[in-house]
Write a protein that binds this DNA or RNA. Structure first.
Length: 181
DNA sequence: CCCTGATTCGC
DNA sequence: GCGAATCAGG
């Protein structure tokens, strides 16, 4: 698409407002950010001063540092975790039968509550995939049963890993896909 | 990996 | 003049 007068004016306006080249390309349509940058240069508009608009578009400071996020579920940083961990005398032994959640109590992405246990059950690809949904241990993402299963002493954890993580990974994929969409 | 603008150069 | 490819950087 050609650089009509209108499109050039819009480009000038948006560039002046501090939008990035890709943002402008998105608004104009039918052009790439490269095209926008190229045009900006040919118009002699490059080297714009930092505008208030640009400042407001700077990435927001992280709400919590990665260290904080990690601490939330670590033995030293989370009282709820610590309590559960210390209380646990024997390693978890995988149950032969998983808990069966009654249909009416099942929680899915849209019905999951803040207080619901987020332990995934079933194949994330299947329609009957759901979460445990029982009340969480305060401060942990799981109910007591699943918290014990998720947070095990280092020694006991290893064998469990192969069993737990595939389902977990799939569930996280699904969550991420839904949140991205 | 996401993103940013800058530059080059064949079209 | 145009913009894809590439570069350099955050």
């Amino acid at each position: 698409m050609a650089w009509t007068d209108e499109r050039v004016e819009l480009l000038k306006k948006l560039w002046g407002e501090g939008l990035s080249a890709s943002q402008i390309a998105g608004r104009l349509g039918s052009v790439t950010r490269n095209a926008v940058i190229g045009k900006v240069h040919r118009l002699g508009l490059s080297g714009r001063a930092t505008t208030s608009r640009m400042k407001s578009h700077r990435p927001r400071p992280r709400m919590a540092s990665k260290r904080m996020a990690k601490a939330r579920f670590s033995a030293t940083g989370n009282p709820a975790f610590r309590a559960l961990y210390q209380e646990q005398q024997e390693p978890y032994m995988p149950a032969v039968e998983e808990i069966v959640i009654p249909l009416a109590e099942r929680k899915t992405i849209p019905t999951l509550l803040e207080c619901s246990c987020r332990w995934p059950i079933g194949d994330p690809q299947m329609a009957d995939f759901h979460f445990c949904g029982k009340d969480k241990v305060p401060g942990l993402p799981y109910c007591e049963f699943h918290a014990r299963r998720a947070f095990q002493p280092p020694q006991a954890r290893r064998r469990e890993r192969e069993v737990v993580e595939p389902a977990m990974g799939g569930a996280l994929d699904v969550i991420q896909r839904k949140e991205t969409a």
